[in-house]
Amino acid sequence: DKSALAGSMFPPGFDRDTLLRGLVPGSGTSALAAGLTRVGAPYVWGAIGPDQFDCSGLVQWAFKQVGKSVPRTSQQQSNFGTPVAEQDLQPGDVVFFYSEVSHVGIYAGNGLMLHASTFGVPVQVAPMGSTPFHSARRY
């Protein structure tokens, strides 16, 4: 039942190797690469990894792997780094959702994000369009 609820952890056509080609150490893309190693890890509210995550815990953990200290909550993370317009998103940018900034993920290109969404759904790459976009930052 859990796997049916979760669906695929990578959307059709998602190509991790092409996405991460030309990886720059310490960049947002490097943090994305680190985060992608956690695909399939369970969502647990308040969890910061390395084996369980909530949304902001996944972002914090991924950036920590590349030497960047990021605030803990999605609201705090939404005020960190440099603002990025939605049309200028690059893989590795951090994307925020809902008017009260209650969800966060890492942009994975082509309208996709890496995120830990909710109980019963493991860390996965999913379309951003199913969640109301609020803002984005580049760390």
Results as ranks from 00 to 15, higher is better:
Ala41Trp: 00
Pro91Glu: 13
His115Ser: 14
Pro12Met: 05
Arg16Gln: 14
Pro50Val: 09
Asp1Gly: 15
Gly111Glu: 06
Gly109Tyr: 03
Phe133Cys: 04
Trp45Phe: 15
Ala108Gly: 08
Arg21Lys: 14
Ser27Pro: 04
Cys55Val: 05
Gly7Glu: 11
Glu86Gly: 07
Asp54Arg: 03
Val123Ala: 09
Phe96Met: 01
Val44Thr: 09
Lys68Thr: 14
Val24Asn: 11
Arg21Met: 11
Phe97Glu: 00
Arg16Glu: 14
Gly40Phe: 13
Asp1Asn: 13
Ser78Leu: 01
Pro83Lys: 10
Val44Pro: 02
Arg21Trp: 08
Ser99Leu: 06
Val39Phe: 13
Ile106Tyr: 05
Gly35His: 01
Gly120Cys: 07
Ala34Gln: 11
Gln90Ser: 09
Val39Ser: 04
Gly35Met: 01
Val121Asn: 10
Ser69Asn: 14
Ser69Gln: 13
Arg38Met: 05
Trp45Asn: 09
Gly13Asn: 02
Gln60Asp: 10
Ser78Gly: 02
Thr82Glu: 15
Thr18Met: 10
Ala126Ile: 07
Gln77Thr: 01
Gln60Ile: 08
Thr29Ala: 15
Asp54Thr: 05
Val84Tyr: 00
Ala47Val: 04
Thr73Asn: 04
Ser117Asn: 07
Leu89Gly: 08
Met113Gln: 10
Lys68Asn: 12
Val39Glu: 02
Val59Ser: 00
Arg138Met: 08
Gly57Met: 01
Ser135Met: 03
Val125Met: 12
Asn79Phe: 11
Ser117Ala: 15
Thr82Val: 14
Gln77Cys: 01
Tyr139Met: 12
Lys2Glu: 15
Ala108Tyr: 05
Val101Pro: 00
Arg38Gln: 10
Ser3Gln: 14
Thr73Asp: 08
Val66His: 07
Gly40Tyr: 12
Ala136Asn: 10
Ser3Val: 13
Val39Ala: 06
Ser8Cys: 13
Gly26Cys: 06
Phe80Thr: 12
Leu89Ile: 04
Pro71Tyr: 00
Gly92Trp: 02
Gln76Phe: 05
Ala116Asn: 02
Pro132Leu: 03
Val101Phe: 01
Phe97Gln: 00
Ala136Glu: 11
Ser117Cys: 08
Gly46Thr: 07
Ala126Trp: 01
Arg72Ser: 04
Arg138Trp: 08
Ser27His: 06
Phe97Lys: 00
Ala62Tyr: 03
Ser30Thr: 10
Leu112Tyr: 15
Gly67Glu: 02
Gly57Asn: 00
Arg38Ile: 02
Ala136Gln: 05
Val94Ile: 14
Pro11Trp: 07
Pro50Phe: 12
Phe119Trp: 14
Pro50Gln: 07
Ala47Glu: 04
Val121Thr: 12
Gly40Gln: 13
Gly40Ala: 12
Asn79Cys: 12
Val125Ser: 03
Ala116Gln: 02
Met128Trp: 04
Tyr139Ser: 09
Leu58Phe: 03
Gly46Ala: 11
Ala31Trp: 01
Thr131Val: 12
Tyr98Arg: 13
Met128Glu: 10
Phe63Glu: 03
Ile48Trp: 09
Pro11Gln: 05
Tyr43Asp: 01
Ala34His: 07
Gly109Thr: 07
Ser78Trp: 00
Arg138Thr: 06
Gly120Lys: 03
Asp15Ile: 07
Leu112Met: 15
Gly129Ser: 15
Leu36Ser: 08
Val84Gln: 02
Thr73Ser: 13
Pro25Asp: 07
His134Phe: 06
Phe119Asp: 15
His103Asp: 04
Ala136Ser: 11
Gly120Arg: 01
Gln52Ser: 15
Pro127Trp: 12
